[in-house]
């Protein structure tokens, strides 16, 4: 091995450890007996592993409801983002039309604003609409986070499927919709699934807007923020671990597409 390669590998190991060690630590922390977290001196590895913290977190007041809310909001966000993003992405990839570049610029500007901050004026608007402190309201603002991604990514996914597929299908006897369903859709399905996962993660993780726009119908992150000042380490560790696991699973599923998806967003 060349000297340069050795240096590269050392750097990779150090950076990997920097990323992974904290995740391992929180996992250990979650399965450490509760009292040991407050003991001193204490060792890195606990005397025994237990799921007590985890169970008591799951059973504490509001958590199950928060979980239900988080999942509902995330699923709604996925549905809204796909319903809004896919047709728009398709339109951008298949047609030339007046205002196309204006529309693209509009989509891109959303990422030039700290959108979460829009939650503040939305409080007022939601109160007017009667959707303050509602699942739907949170899902709407999460959709604002997610749908530009959905548009840009689906645009590029559709662009990667030649339009000739649909055209051949139409010549051979399909309607426009039928041609889409029989040719393009099966080919883009995995990409669409990746968009869905992405939207789910965005919503599942979002804290600020969810905190501001809810009082009782809190999502998990909002619930944790609300409890921050009056809670114990074991509750926090377990909650972090609980929030973390689905994200790890999801990112593992879409790992192959990560790079391409982000490459698209940069343009």
């Amino acid at each position: 091995m060349k000297k340069q390669e050795v240096i590269c590998y050392i750097a990779m190991v150090i950076i990997s450890l920097f990323v992974l060690v904290p995740i391992i630590l929180i996992t250990i922390g979650t399965f450490t007996p509760r009292l040991e977290l407050y003991k001193w001196p204490r060792g890195l590895i606990p005397s025994r592993f237990t799921s007590d913290s985890f169970i008591s977190f799951a059973q504490s007041y509001g958590v199950m409801n928060g979980l239900k809310n988080s999942i509902t909001v995330a699923v709604l966000t996925v549905i809204f983002s796909l319903l809004i993003g896919i047709p728009a992405g398709y339109s951008l990839s298949r047609f030339k039309f007046k205002g196309k570049s204006l529309f693209t610029v509009g989509v891109l500007t959303t990422r030039m604003f700290p959108i979460a901050i829009l939650a503040v004026p939305l409080v007022k608007i939601y109160m007017g609409l009667g959707i303050y402190d509602s699942i739907l309201g949170v899902a709407f603002i999460h959709t604002i986070f997610a749908f530009p991604f959905a548009i840009l990514i689906s645009h590029s996914i559709f662009a990667s499927v030649p339009r000739e597929f649909e055209e051949v299908a139409m010549v051979l006897g399909c309607s426009r919709l039928g041609a889409f369903r029989r040719t393009t859709l099966p080919l883009v399905a995995p990409g669409i699934a990746a968009i869905a996962i992405f939207a789910f993660i965005i919503s599942w993780n979002e804290v600020f807007a969810a905190t501001l726009l809810t009082l009782h119908n809190r999502t998990l992150p909002a619930l944790i923020v609300a409890r921050l000042e009056a809670t114990t380490l074991d509750f926090l560790f377990a909650s972090a671990f609980f929030m973390l696991v689905p994200c790890l699973v999801f990112i593992f599923i879409i790992r192959k597409r990560l790079l391409r998806m982000w490459g698209i967003i940069l343009r």
Partner: peptide
Amino acid sequence: FICAIPIALSEIVAGIIWLS
């Protein structure tokens, strides 16, 4: 992939991890 993992993590999870 390892370096990309944190992209899937919530701000709040990151906060708690480093709190630990």
